[in-house]
Amino acid sequence: MTTAVEFLRITDLHAFYGESHILHGVDLSVNRGEVVTLLGRNGAGRTTTLKSILGLVGHRSGSIMINGREAIGLPPHKIAHLGIGYCPEERGIFSSLSCEENLLLPPVVASTGLSVDEIYDMFPNLKERRMSQGTRLSGGEQQMLAVARILRTGAQLLLLDEISEGLAPVIVQALGRTIRMLREKGYTIVMVEQNFRFAAPLADRFYVMEHGRIVEAFSAGEMRSKMGMLHEFLGI
């Protein structure tokens, strides 16, 4: 391994929706090429952490360094151009756009993205259904599309929120293969996952959140010794 280069560093992040104070000083860091998973119970603040990185919460404070640039004061459309791709929890497929229009929607933020042909090779279903209305796709296809469309943009840091949620086991396996392949290609990935069994074999490191704070951090190698703690926090 070459020496680790930090791609994302969050320090003392506080986030608010209106009056409600959701994140209470989150600290975490992700190195280039790493796959990091945020674990936690429902409502722990994992989605809010991803949204805060993108500037999609009401108010936030602290520091978010992305690729050496401070993002805390930037508007959301500028943050994306620091090289971030976002796959939201609710997938965010647009019903007034066809499958292919959905795929082509996110603007290119760096020249390193996959071509449309490469993406169709990876997700043949999407090619078949490219003229269909986005929301006519099956749940699994929509999830593929939500991941696929951020691979086109050249974003190097992918924020993936519960991509395995509510999908059939074969689709979850296919998504697992996709994540592995993306890691081999050198993408940096932050995944929020409820499904520990999906995340466990994929991630290099784990953070556990509770009540808007990071309460545990461990690497894949330490997983065995942490099972007791995970059981307690997540009921796994």
């Binding site: 993108l54 500037g55 999609l56 508007p75 959301p76 459309h77 500028k78 943050i79 994306a80 151009h81 976002y86 939201p88 965010g92 647009f94 019903s95 007034s96 756009l97 229009e101 082509l104 929607l105 996110p106 603007p107 933020v109 951020i150 943009t153």
Partner: peptide, 25 residues
């Protein structure tokens, strides 16, 4: 057109379109 796709998507979910890097305001 592509511009129109931004507009249609922005009509549905402006936050997400902005998170993709489009200057929605």
């Amino acid at each position: 057109t592509r511009l129109g796709a931004y507009l249609r998507a922005g009509t549905e979910n402006p936050q997400l379109v902005q998170a993709f890097g489009v200057n929605v305001p």
